[in-house]
Simulated scan of single mutants.
Amino acid sequence: MFAQLIMSGIVNGSVYAVVALGMTVLYRSTTVVNFCHGEFFMLGAFAVLVAQQLFGWTYAGSIVFALAMLFLAGCAIERVLMRPLQNAPHISMAMMTVALSYLLKGISRFFYGREVKPLQPLIGGDPIEIGSVILMPQDVLIAGFSLLVVFGFFYFFQRTETGKVIQAASQTPRGASLVGINVPLLRNLMWGVGALMGAAAGILIAPNTLVYPDMGGHMLIRAFAAMTLGGFGSLPGAVAGALTLGVLENLIGGYISSSLVEITAYLVIIVVLIVRPQGIMGEWRQGRG
């Protein structure tokens, strides 16, 4: 039972990691904490359903459609709603994302109510047995995709010139503009990438959790807890925090009470903020220049 709980926790934590990475990438490149990221997660899954039910597209075509739509939506949100606030206090930008979160959730409820809809797994097949641990092929896909994303983003920000430029531009936007860097374009693209990451996570986990308008809120608090535990702005920290949270939830649910699973993320946030506010691998970030 212990091994099964650990492995299932790692799979769940892998999904949290993809969501937390999307938020962390945006934070590193814009210093904005995006509270509507959970709705990107939700809309990615709904976009696949819409493409399948209304247009009759294949699963693969629906996924491409969903990812493209969320990328464009992220870019549009930055251009129309966030860019006018770029010189405003951070709290104004955060409140804009909160308002957008409720707006997107309200729109989805208007069209779908509170109905829960199924989404078929990306891959089928028989369960995979590894000793006493049983995994579904969908679980293996989730873990593998998460691993690929982790290494991809780590390489991009640490090893490529573009990744280093994006980080530099977020820390000193005026200086970056003076040397010819198109800071608004970089921010716009990072909003698109962040939305795309949220959508990808939603598509991966939807076959396990089903699709409903409030699914993003539950994922947002877990991603936020993962970032808090690992440290805001730290890519490895976001992953470590997400995997730790996933395992903690499973162990607490398996050995203590399943009713405590829903509050584990909140407990993690409280404890970390009291004991080590910067998180495990956190780094203090300066305000925008």
Rank of each mutant, 00 (worst) to 15 (best):
V271W: 03
E161Q: 11
V211Q: 05
S258G: 12
I142A: 04
F111D: 09
T172V: 13
V116W: 08
L119P: 01
V239F: 06
R285D: 06
Y16G: 01
S146C: 10
R187C: 06
P127N: 08
M23E: 01
R285M: 13
L245H: 03
G202D: 02
I134E: 11
Q286Y: 10
L178F: 13
K105A: 08
I107N: 08
A88Y: 14
S146P: 01
L54C: 10
P184R: 09
G253R: 01
A88L: 10
F111Y: 12
V275I: 15
M227Y: 05
N250A: 05
F2L: 15
P207I: 06
Y102D: 06
G198S: 11
Q278W: 13
P213R: 09
A265R: 11
T209Q: 07
L119A: 11
I270C: 00
V261F: 08
S146R: 05
L49H: 10
F41K: 02
D139Q: 15
M82N: 04
S170D: 07
R222Y: 07
E161V: 14
G152V: 05
S108L: 14
R285G: 09
F157P: 05
G230K: 14
S132H: 13
S177M: 13
G113S: 09
P277T: 07
T24L: 13
G198W: 07
G192I: 13
S108T: 15
P118A: 08
I280H: 10
E39R: 00
H218M: 14
G282N: 08
G38A: 07
L245I: 12
G38V: 02
M82T: 10
G198P: 09
G180Y: 14
L119S: 09
S8G: 13
P184E: 09
L186K: 00
V193P: 05
A17C: 09
M281H: 06
V183D: 00
V247M: 00
L273D: 09
L245M: 08
L245S: 04
V261G: 00
A223G: 15
I6P: 03
L141H: 08
W191M: 03
V80I: 13
I128A: 07
V15D: 02
I221P: 07
I77H: 04
A195E: 02
F41D: 02
R28M: 03
N182Q: 15
Y266T: 11
M190R: 00
S92F: 13
S14M: 05
